[in-house]
């Protein structure tokens, strides 16, 4: 297989939160069109990696670089990263009272369109964009008139993240434990939606604790993150190995190596 251009290149990334070093030197290269999975035990730094790539202000970069489309990603504000095509599907999506899902998503899409020099969409044009995307996650537009994530079940919140992903069409989609809290049907819907969104111009970084999401989304590369470092990388078979053996053997491996 011919390898695409490097979309994201992370080198020696060390990150602390509240004074604790969580990532202790991460190297990661994601090319156009690739799907990478990051797996690892709780506390290994998976979510930190997702958050820091999206620019969460609570995380301090101690060392290392991250180039996105050849630009210094770490120097960009969160909204600049978003407008450049970096999307994070949150593990815990936030509620926004009094603002409808539809208004929120249209505002977000228009912020991206402004950046690209495209005309903003009015509510009617937006509805047309939305219709097909809603279908892909099995929703009708009743969910769009509810306040953002307010009163949504865990599964509905995750679907909403995938809907946003589908509408905003990022170049790099980071999914932070999108599978947690989903029942099997929801998991399948979400996975199918993600598979539909796979294309040679879009890369995915899927952060997950369990292998089960990867039964439906076959990654190109699987990385194992343990204690702030990527300790192993491999093909999809690595995920299955982890599922069978758990993470403990890896931890031991780290200690002896």
């Amino acid at each position: 297989m011919k390898k695409g251009k490097a979309l994201l290149e992370v080198k020696g990334l060390r990150v602390a939160v509240a004074g604790n070093e969580i990532l202790k030197g991460v190297d990661l290269t994601i090319r156009d069109g690739e799907v990478h999975a990051i797996m690892g035990p709780n506390g290994s730094g998976k979510s930190t990696l997702a958050q820091v790539l999206a620019g969460h202000p609570a995380y301090t970069v101690l060392a290392g670089t991250a180039q996105y489309e050849g630009k210094d990603l770490l120097d960009m504000k969160p909204e600049e990263r978003a407008r450049a095509g970096v999307f994070l599907a949150f593990q815990y999506p936030v509620e926004v009272r009094g603002i409808t899902n539809s208004y929120f998503l249209r505002s977000a899409l228009n912020a991206l369109r402004r950046e690209r020099g495209e005309p903003e969409l009015d509510p009617i044009d937006f509805l047309q964009v939305l219709e097909a995307k809603l279908k892909s996650i099995g929703w009708d537009d009743s969910m769009m008139n509810r306040p953002v994530n307010e009163g949504f079940s865990g599964g509905e919140k995750k679907r909403n993240e995938i809907l946003q992903l589908a509408v905003l069409e990022p170049r790099l989609a980071i999914l932070d434990e999108t599978d947690s809290g989903l029942d099997i049907d929801a998991l399948r819907t979400v996975a199918e939606a993600v598979n539909q969104l796979r294309n040679p111009k879009r890369a995915f970084l899927i952060v997950t604790h369990y292998q089960r999401l990867l039964n439906y989304i076959t990654p190109d590369v699987v990385h194992v993150l343990a204690d702030g470092r990527i300790v192993r990388s491999g093909g999809p078979e690595l995920a299955q190995e982890l599922e069978a053996k758990g993470y403990d053997w890896l931890r031991d491996g780290v200690m002896v190596s």
Binding site: K77, P78, A82, L88, R97, G98, F104, S107, P147, L168
Partner: peptide
């Protein structure tokens, strides 16, 4: 909180627009 504002900024809204959206939603009634 920072998390709420971060969520909106991650979707491409500026920090000011994020605050304004959260506050306006709060005051909508």
């Amino acid at each position: 909180g920072e998390d709420q504002i971060f969520y909106l900024r991650q979707r491409g809204l500026s920090a000011e627009d994020a605050v304004s959206m959260i506050v306006n939603g709060f005051c909508k009634e």
